[in-house]
Design a protein around this nucleic acid. Structure first.
Lengths: 227, 227, 227, 227
DNA sequence: AATGAATGAGGATTCATTCAT
DNA sequence: AATGAATGAATCCTCATTCAT
């Protein structure tokens, strides 16, 4: 009796061809967001980039926002993948830090463009903003735990609030990743990872980190000089 | 013959009332950008928020992008003001670092929302993106010079690339400012400034910084323990 | 904090010009519905018929359905007006019946096209269908009361269910009005009103109605014949 | 040269299975029109309701309008069947009237939804509207002939125009059928048929009809009262 | 200066129909 | 004969901007 009024809600494709088209659209959408920004993210542009016709877009997505959801989820998935890879096989804390920073730098590099659009309120969708927050929380949470472990082991400065410190140093990585991708002549990845890791290590007073020696030498020199 | 002027090309207001209306529009535009994002930044919404009628908007601004220019310039001005205030009267490097971080934290807090929109390519206007880059450059440039001076004075780790380090630590402050303003229960400002400053100081190995002692003590303890 | 997401909801015009434009759109919409049916009822066609530009439509109406609401309300208003005019000053029940039928014939004539579209589910809007039902109910309700009064006064057949009878005879008027307007060569109004009234009167056995004599004469004749 | 055929032009199904699928689609189309209106009458919805896949629709029908044709023809067929059943075996005019009204009430009940859609100009197809007119004409024509016969036999009021009267009373039946099917708690069929028949009979002054006596009694009473 | 109505190009979405499998 | 993905013209709606008062 009651009349149906909800849109058919595009069904997931059943055939291989369908899945390929759909994935192509998501990928195209992501590329457009990354390279040309929100204002270029139109169904028409996405369809064209994916090499399909205009209406095909709506065979797979309810709306432009629906595609955005899928793109964001795809990006979020990559970020989380970067977190999980982080190898526990390595013993040396500094080496692990370097590895972790490299992964995150890469992950944020690709992700930040898309995630910030959402953050900026491009789409008026609370659920999306939630996803972005969760990613940051996950990232910071991981770093917080790592720092706390080091502090407990007496390998890092115990006077730092682990969470706030993790937030600050994680922020550093995120924003550097973003800034780097906007540069005309970006710093070389190794250089950036090296610096970020050394700064991070020194900031938390990590025992056995590369720049650890400098302070001692400096004090020694200063002592000599002042004598 | 006579010059053909399609558009009246809004003249700067001559009366006090005019100036007040104009400033009100700029302020309204800024508030909307900060609180509701780019998609809410419509001439109609701005006019309504400023409490004037729809058409009045175009009495003062050529276009929506024109207003955006003014908003961005206003924000940029605040950022630069924060830089200039930076007190040279203080002698202690760490104290100056704290003061500087506090000012930037505040400045980025307000500015980041607006500047990132531009960064995101909200407006297809190269000139605007230029302004944003200049602000960042100015900020990083200042920090770079400061760091170099410290290195030259033997007060900071000379093995760090000054520019990349300044970029990284400046990024930390910027992103923390942004993250803080998005939090439900933000950290208290003093706490944040304190942590950022200590992390910054430790990261560059600043002589005489609060956490300097920890490394020595840790080594001593470690030495004792291993004996 | 919460972001606003409801459409501005077009404000009623404040100026005379605005009101004129708005009324023109409603009128144009009604004419299109009456003359060219639902499928021709597009914002573009309405605007063009009203002699205004495309976008002006949306200055006054949220959507095509919004305009339909206004059109239906306007039609409904006319139907009700027809009911209220019905003169109580006339004493003779049959004369009043004729007057009433004439008014309803005219009212249904114009209204039926529009109201049936709604009835047919052109717009998926329950509220509209409700309005149509209310009009019919009002009409039938009036006729029901009139019949009951006549029955109580001994002037109409008391064996008839007043409501069902009112529904049936009212239906007759409505459908005749509709059928007439669809004819190539419609019956003349006076003829139709005369017939409807006589049929209605005879159907309820109204005392003093024009055809009352026939039955008696017929019986008399029949009697004579059979004699 | 060879005939160019853009479209395969659906052939009538040769297999039993094919016929069943085709009939299922027509039935599904009809149900959708009756229950959910014109706007829900999409090839997709029809196919889904019939339980076949999307593209199968076009295996059997050239277009949506093609299916509509078939549905209308099916409905029209039922209406005509109702007319033909009308039993000439019954002698009593009133009894025949009752039987006829019952059949038409049922037939219009189902048919009116679909036929009115066409009438409303849902499909921009003149041929369809023609079919609807023919049905009404047939119906009214039958009633006209019946009435004329009664008048000639001295059994009905000869002062009524047979065609206009048939139109009016037929309209009554049609519209009551339609109104009844839209009611929450419809009147019971027997009650409706009884009332429609009595009203019809009284309206034409049918000799020997149930309410005939009332007028005489009323006059008698009135006479007595006035004495 | 101020107002608010008017404009129309641009963008999102629908859906009848076609096509490859 | 059946399937469901692909197509794109047609349509609804938005909103930056212009204009008459």
């Amino acid at each position: 009796m009651g009349r149906q009024r909800t849109k058919p809600a595009p069904t997931p494709p059943t055939t291989t061809r369908g899945r390929r088209t759909r994935d192509g659209l998501i990928l195209a959408g992501r590329e457009i967001l990354e390279q040309r920004g929100w204002s270029a993210f139109t169904p028409e542009a996405v369809a064209q980039t994916a090499g399909v016709s205009y209406g095909t877009f709506y065979t797979y997505f309810e709306s432009r926002d629906d595609l955005l959801h899928h793109v964001v989820r795809s990006v979020a998935g990559e970020m989380l993948a970067a977190s999980l890879v982080s190898p526990d096989g390595v013993d040396d804390p500094y080496a692990r830090l370097v590895e972790s920073n490299r992964l995150y730098l890469r992950a944020w590099d690709r992700a930040s463009k898309v995630l910030r659009l959402v953050d900026q309120g491009a789409a008026a969708d609370e659920a999306l903003r939630q996803i972005v927050h969760e990613i940051r929380d996950f990232y910071v949470g991981r770093a917080t735990k790592g720092l706390r472990r080091l502090q407990d082991a007496g390998l890092a400065n115990p006077d730092l609030d682990p969470r706030l410190t993790a937030l600050a140093l994680g922020s550093m990585v995120e924003q550097v990743a973003h800034a780097r991708s906007a540069m005309e002549e970006p710093y070389d990845e190794d250089t950036v990872v090296d610096h970020l890791s050394r700064l991070w290590a020194s900031a938390i007073g990590l025992q056995g980190a590369p720049d650890e020696g400098w302070a001692a030498r400096a004090r020694a020199t200063a002592g000599t000089a002042s004598d």
